[in-house]
Amino acid sequence: MTEKKNIFDKMMTLDRRWVFLFLIVVCVATYAADFSIPINTEQETESIFNFLDSLPPDDIVLIAIDYDPNNLAELHPMTYAVVEHLWRKKVKVIFTSLSQLGPAMADQAIRDISDSLKIDKTYNYNGVEHNFKGREIVNGVDYTFLGYKPYYALIILGMGQDFRLNFPNDYYGTPLDDLPMMQGVINYDQVACVVDLSGGNITDAWISYGQGRFNFPLMLGLTGVMTAQYYPFLGSGQVSGIMGGLLGAAQYEELADNPGRAKDGMRVQLFAHYVIILFIVLGNIGYFMSRRKNLEGGN
């Protein structure tokens, strides 16, 4: 005769598909609901924001879009938040993509952000109201998109000598010397900092071949999975700031007073984490109660 299962035994043998279903239902319901949550900013994101916010107009920042569509959900909001902030301040941007599918990501972000900057907006951060007059973002004047080249380590080293070495033309086929903003821009010496938004080990190359060799300020925007691995570089001063996953992007949006996809996604994160914690607690209760029952039963 089969022994009747109690609730704790059922907890231990719960089909994982019920967990997935419950999680998806909670995520969809939370996403559909209209509410907001406060975002507390951290020092590692603040240091990136403060550095970029302190740059005068016409300074140049190199942004490396080193991620593919599989990391789009986490890293695209960072790109939107950082680039929009820079263009609001009339800081020029050089884009590169050392990830194979990165050019499409960069191209989409450039088009979307250019569109959103055509309208007048008011931002309120650092206790000051900033009025932004909508303007056209022009290729070759406000930004240069270098595109993709394989073997990222060699490209990072090559750009330290001359951007034209690996990128004689930009992504759209225009020679770099024909672009107004690239006049007099030779290598990293003319760049205020590098922001690497990465979903893979290209970040290692930016740290060792880029920052290690050419000593420019390096800031990272990383996927959640990678973030903990790169904290030692923050402690050693090799990296000036880290935005970790969707939370990092949401913090930047909060700092720049530019709520977007990341802040929206953090609402879902909150409730998804509650569900995961609930199942961890239930699973542990089930495990300990079943073990106690077995011990009492002499098994």
Binding site: A73, E74, L246, G265, A272
Partner: peptide, 8 residues
């Protein structure tokens, strides 16, 4: 957090 972000 990363995996939930992908789901989002």
């Amino acid at each position: 957090m990363g995996r939930i972000s992908l789901l989002v």
